[in-house]
């Protein structure tokens, strides 16, 4: 049986597809987007996560630790009386996860909802997800992906899920590499598959001030969808300053190279003139 590593399971995720849904956050991502608000989803390994705000400095965690470097043994986690520490990243077997998700089945069926796989980048653990789906027949499955994976896996995924929510962050390849750490050629290739296929899909654009919120990028993005195929709509997600909240919790520093206090511009006309429906979240 395959196993996967998961950093969160969220019930009633209202912005992750139709109806009442439970979203599984798969750990590990090949991209390093500077605006990422789930930094604990980046590394494919378990990580210690600490919420310091309510700490009463009782010292129990320090007494429990016998290591020079954190090995995510969890000793400090289980002695914190306030539960301020946890290990982000739990290993599940495909069957365990399916059983967990099926607990919510009544909520899915009455609302047109289902399960969404997000991350991190769920495509990194596609073979695990595919096995989970085997145990979830008849349940509406959605995936939130960057599209950064090989064409073969992506194509296989398209035939197995009911809805794909894919990010298009930047069209300019140089800027894409600069702000996300990777080239966008694979992403655009997979997008082509999406446009030509039958699986309904939604395009999501995080609007990052000064990075991709200019009219030019929006025009270039919209132009790709002259023949949009099964596109449902384009969703625009304006950047919010709270994106950086979790970095210090996993011992990272949030250092984006853009002005986090600026308000992103929202250009809808490039989409509307092509009759592409939009939704600003």
């Amino acid at each position: 049986m395959k196993t996967g590593i998961i950093f969160d399971i969220k019930e009633f995720a209202v912005y992750d597809g139709p109806g009442i849904r439970t979203t599984v956050f798969m750990k590990g991502c090949p991209l390093r987007c500077q605006w990422c608000h789930n930094p604990e989803g980046l590394s494919p390994k378990p990580q210690l996560m600490i919420s310091p705000a309510a700490c009463i400095h009782c010292g129990a965690c320090q007494n429990a630790c016998h290591h020079k470097m954190c090995i995510t043994c969890g000793a400090c986690v289980s002695c914190c009386p306030l539960g301020l520490r946890r290990i982000a990243g739990t290993v599940w077997t495909s069957k365990e996860l399916a059983l967990r998700l099926l607990k919510n089945q009544q909520a899915f069926s009455g609302s047109g909802g289902g399960v969404t796989f997000s991350g991190g980048e769920p495509m990194m653990q596609w073979s695990f997800i595919e096995q989970v789906l085997y145990y979830l027949p008849g349940i509406h499955i959605a995936i939130e992906t960057s599209g950064y994976t090989d064409v073969k896996t992506f194509s296989r995924m398209c035939s197995k899920v009911n809805l794909i929510m894919m990010d298009i962050k930047l069209i300019n390849p140089i800027n894409h590499k600069k702000y996300t750490g990777v080239d966008n050629d694979r992403i655009l290739m997979n997008l082509k598959l999406l446009k030509e296929g039958n699986t309904p899909y939604i395009i999501r654009i995080p609007l990052i001030p000064g990075v991709n919120d200019d009219e030019n990028n929006m025009e270039e993005t919209a132009a790709i969808f002259e023949k949009p195929g099964s596109l449902i709509r384009v969703e625009l997600l304006p950047y919010h300053i709270t994106a950086g909240a979790k970095y210090s919790m996993i011992g990272l520093e949030y250092q984006p190279q853009f002005d986090t206090s600026a308000k992103p511009e929202i250009w809808l006309s490039p989409f509307h003139k092509r009759s592409i429906p939009t939704l600003v979240l």
Partner: peptide
């Protein structure tokens, strides 16, 4: 933040209905 759009309102309404159905 749950209530940003009409779709989300429908989902909350569906959740309430589920409680009643259960």
């Amino acid at each position: 933040s749950v209530f940003r759009n009409d779709e989300a309102i429908t989902k909350v309404a569906q959740l309430v209905r589920l409680f009643i159905e259960l």
